[in-house]
Design a protein around this nucleic acid. Sequence first.
RNA 1: GGUCUCUUGGCCGAGGGGUUAGGCAGCGGUCUGCAAAACCGUUUACGGCGGUUCAAAUCCGCCAGAGACCUCCA
Length: 491
Amino acid sequence: MPRELFLYNTLTRTKEKFEPLNPPHVGLYVCGPTVYSDPHLGHARPAVTFDVLFRYLKHLGYKVRYVRNITDVGHLEDEVAGEGEDRIQKKARLEQLEPMEVVQHYINRYHHFMDMLGILQPSIEPHASGHIIEQQQLIKIIIDKGFAYVVNGSVYFDLKKYNDQFGYGALSGRNIEDMLNNTRELEGQDEKRYPLDFALWKKADSTHIMHWPSLWSEGFPGWHLECSSMGMKYLGEQFDIHGGGMDLIFPHHECELAQSTVVTGRPPVRYWMHNNMITINGQKMARSKNNFITLEELFTGKNALLEKAFSPMTIRFYMLQAHYTSPVDFSNDALKAAEQGLNRLMKGLSLLPKLKPSASSTVDVITLRENAYKALSDDLNCPVLLGNLFEGVRIINSVIDRKETINKEDLESLTEFMRTFTHDLLGLAPEENGRSNDNELLDKVVKLLLQQRQEAKARKDYAASDHIRKQLASLGIQVMDTKDGAVWEME
RNA sequence: GGUCUCUUGGCCGAGGGGUUAGGCAGCGGUCUGCAAAACCGUUUACGGCGGUUCAAAUCCGCCAGAGACCUCCA
């Protein structure tokens, strides 16, 4: 019997109990990156958010098929100016590369940085360019059902007709009349019957180098179609969860919803989930604002906005400290605080094997564990879960300090609890900095020195003992005296 | 201009009508030959003004400020 899980559904604007269509199977679709530039902070937020969801669903016993697409075609750029050019194509033209070369390069980069962030790989990672036929099939169905029309080789979705029959705007909470009154007059849209109609297929002009044959023209698919067709193909006409950044709610997901509804006659998705944005100094991080930080810059510190480098796990931890529906503002001070907090958590976990059980317990592990489940089940409340984990750290440190005691059973339970929630569910792991204490020979050598130091201390020759500690410190080895003797670690 | 959201202690951030969030930083203490780490304490904060209520940071109204979407975006 799986635990209850409540998720905030953008469509209904409420937290709803999660009930999969076909338990124990769960279908999860998340909008992945458009691979035309280096992955940045904004890519990390949905990746981390839905990674935790993926991990938790599996932990609860569901068999999850997680689909995260790669957009490698079809997103127009600079639509306002009426000079739509495919982003990947533009990059390819500027760099004189084969478009697929650009795509492959940035996919590799994306995977590399997602790995560093501890993001699990999705079950399927379909490419839009690999599903042109499927997208064309959907267009055909939409035309046949009378919800799209062909003009000069391009196909447009008839939004007015759709709105009359199904109602448009439920997801983003806006009505079409409002939008009509507030939509700017865009150039180059004379082909559309109605300003809000959107392209399903666009005829390629002579400058386009990415194009495919179709019934309508040599061209390329519209913006929103890939998610409709790939979601349908791999998860079925209706599936459980669709996720993405909240900037995609309108128009991307709204249009996707409309297309799919026309094709199948019913809504495609049960639960729509959207993560909030990253801000830099209170402003949304956006290409146009020129304030975005790539993940590489973050991990190396090479960006004017950064005082220092921050590790992938620090970034992950920092994002988990805020609820996914809240904006996260990045600042050096906040990241430094997160770094210290993560350090404390990891140190606590590393001490677990050193705990010695007593006959009785003064700590309540069962309640702690129960609260942790409650937190995650309440719409993935990771900040509260982290609070629970820090309570676990307090217990660990207190047992070491002999201020609390723990029996064997509770110790096993605490160990399992801390590792499961920190490593398996939040995906936080100790970072390999290449300076670990794993080197057996080094450990022996340092221990030899520590023994010398102990002997000096025993004869109260503190000058000698402090000298050894100082010399080791200059090599980056920190010595700490505990009740159970001296220990050391690399800084 | 339209739609919507937010405003919590030095900083970051949960919560959400009465009872400790948590992390970071600072300060005081314990431990220690010293140091580091750890532990304990730090006497409680919710934009302003009204209202509802026995009780409001939490609900309602107004005001101020910030942000998001309306256009590619994660």
